[in-house]
Every structure is written in structure tokens, then in C-alpha cells.
């Protein structure tokens, strides 16, 4: 009887992951959430008191920038996810169906190679390409195609371009695994029954790859809405996202309590979107919950 109540060896193997989750997510998030309900740091300031003023500040938005920043964050996240999916899916499909091992390895290396360079470096590289005196604008002006620089940077366009470049590998790697596990004979069967290439893809391969689409999209969306460096460097005055506001509050306004409230708001809104997205995809694929 006593043996039956002992945790299984598998449970013990899960312990490190669980500990990691508690230490590096639950605990920091708990502290952040707690701080967001205090007027100051209760550990160092005995006069700190409980308050909802940081949330009121966001909700009523008398400054007129917080709601815009939230919308901007979500918009950039959604556009980046959609573009990454559009670029990543065909590439992942091609990789998954590739017969040559060498070819697969080479493409995989090409996909992973950008990840070997830091985000700051990659963003600076995009700056040298997209800025007014950058490679593209200089060439276009020199060739007489345009008379003044195109607005390729210091806006949402430049931000999304750089983010897509950074996050496409995450989409590709996630999708490749899922598409690779889809039995090719299913597609062949559909075609033998008279479906064209496109119809076989739309009605067989695409629905079966929905779990990969969901996982890849959630990964890219989560990374995009929490991106700080790239929107800061590429966005100029046009882009203000919640992570930028959070960094401002911590690093230059020295108000970690309001930053905590902004962090909680971002997490809650993101979770709501993720749940809704999961349900929509589940309904589309006829399954009850994909993730």
C-alpha cells in the first residue's frame, strides 16, 4: 500500500522542469503582480501601501498613450505572426518533404544560421539596410528610381521586417516537425481520388498541420509582443509598445510598480488572445483543443 502512494520515477524526472517553472516564472510573476498592487517597494519602503492606482492609471489612460501602446503591441505581434507563418510554412513544407538528407541539413543550417547572431546585432544590420542612408535607399536614389529616401525604418514597417527575420526560424522549426510527421500517403490517396494538388493540400495537409501552425504562431506571437530591442531601435517615434513602456518605467522613471501593472495587463491580454486563437483553430480542425 505504501509503495502505491510513492511518486512514480517519471514524476521525479519532471521535478527539475517544475522547479525551473516555479523559480523562473511563477515566482517572478508573483512578485511582479504583488508589486503592481503596492505604492512602492514594500521590502525597502515601510510606508508602501496597497493600491489599485497603477491599474486605474492604465484603464483610464488620462495620458492618452497606454491604450495606443497596447494596441500597437498586439498589432505588431499579429502582423509579425501572420507574415512569419506565410514565409515559414512553405519553407517548412519543403524541408519536411525533402528526400535528400544533405539538402535538408543545408536548408536547416540556413534557417538556423541567423539565430547564431544576437538580436541586437541583427537589428543593427537591418538599420544599415533600411535607414535613410542605408543600402536600399542609397541604391534607389543613386539609380534615380526615387528622389528622396523611402520610409523603410523608424516606423512599424521596419519593426515588423526585423521581427519577422528574427522569428521566422522559430516558426519553421516548429512547423517542420509537425509536417514531417504527416503521412504523405494521405495526400497521395486524396490525389488518387481526384483531388488536385491544391485541394489535397487544403483539405488534407493543412488541417493536419494545424497543431504546428498553432504552436508556431503562439511562439512567434509571444516573442513578438514581448520584443523590446527591435521596436526600440527600428521604430523611431512612430512605435511605442508595452515592453518599451515597461522598460521606461523601470529604467528611467524608476516606477517598478506601474511597470508591474503593465506587465500583468500584457500577460492577461495575451492569454485571452491565445485562448481565443486555440478555440478558433480547434473548431476549424474539428478537435477539442489543440494545445
Amino acid at each position: 500500500m505504501a509503495v502505491a502512494s510513492r511518486p512514480s520515477p517519471i514524476a521525479w524526472l519532471l521535478a527539475p522542469a517544475l522547479l525551473l517553472f516555479v523559480l523562473f516564472f511563477v515566482l517572478p510573476f508573483g512578485v511582479m503582480a504583488m508589486m503592481s498592487f503596492y505604492s512602492g517597494n514594500p521590502v525597502t519602503n515601510p510606508n508602501a501601501f496597497l493600491t489599485t492606482r497603477h491599474y486605474e492609471r492604465f484603464v483610464f489612460d488620462t495620458a492618452g498613450i497606454y491604450h495606443d501602446a497596447l494596441w500597437s503591441t498586439l498589432r505588431i505581434g499579429l502582423i509579425t505572426t501572420i507574415v512569419s507563418l506565410l514565409i515559414g510554412y512553405p519553407l517548412a513544407h519543403w524541408m519536411a518533404r525533402m528526400q535528400s538528407r544533405l539538402g535538408h541539413a543545408l536548408v536547416l543550417m540556413a534557417v538556423i544560421a541567423p539565430m547564431l547572431t544576437g538580436i541586437v546585432v541583427r537589428t543593427f544590420a537591418w538599420m544599415t539596410i533600411l535607414q535613410d542612408k542605408g543600402v536600399i535607399n542609397t541604391l534607389l536614389i543613386d539609380w534615380g528610381i526615387v528622389s528622396k529616401p523611402l520610409p523603410l525604418m523608424y516606423n512599424e514597417f521596419g519593426t515588423v521586417v526585423a521581427l519577422v527575420h528574427i522569428y521566422v526560424p522559430f516558426m519553421v522549426l516548429t512547423l517542420t516537425g509537425v509536417i514531417g510527421r504527416i503521412d504523405e500517403r494521405l495526400e497521395q490517396a486524396a490525389r488518387s481520388l481526384g483531388a488536385g494538388r491544391l485541394r489535397a493540400f487544403v483539405e488534407v495537409t493543412l488541417p493536419l498541420s494545424l497543431p504546428g501552425i498553432l504552436a508556431g504562431s503562439l511562439l512567434v506571437f509571444a516573442l513578438s509582443i514581448s520584443a523590446y530591442v527591435t521596436p526600440s531601435l527600428m521604430g523611431g517615434t512612430d512605435v511605442l509598445t508595452l515592453p518599451m513602456l515597461i522598460a521606461q518605467q523601470v529604467g528611467t522613471s524608476f516606477n517598478p510598480n506601474f511597470a508591474g501593472a503593465l506587465g500583468v495587463v500584457l500577460l492577461l491580454v495575451s492569454l485571452a488572445i491565445v485562448v481565443a486563437y486555440n478555440r478558433i483553430l480547434a473548431r476549424l480542425s474539428g478537435e477539442q483543443g489543440l494545445a
Partner: peptide, 15 residues
């Protein structure tokens, strides 16, 4: 006044 100034200049410079 930093918080008020930050909000004001952000709105001025955006767009």
C-alpha cells in the same frame, strides 16, 4: 513632472 512630460512628448512626436 517627468510622467506628465513623457506622456505629452510621446504624443507630440508620434506619427
Amino acid at each position: 513632472r517627468k510622467e506628465d512630460i513623457d506622456a505629452r512628448v510621446t504624443k507630440i512626436l508620434k506619427g
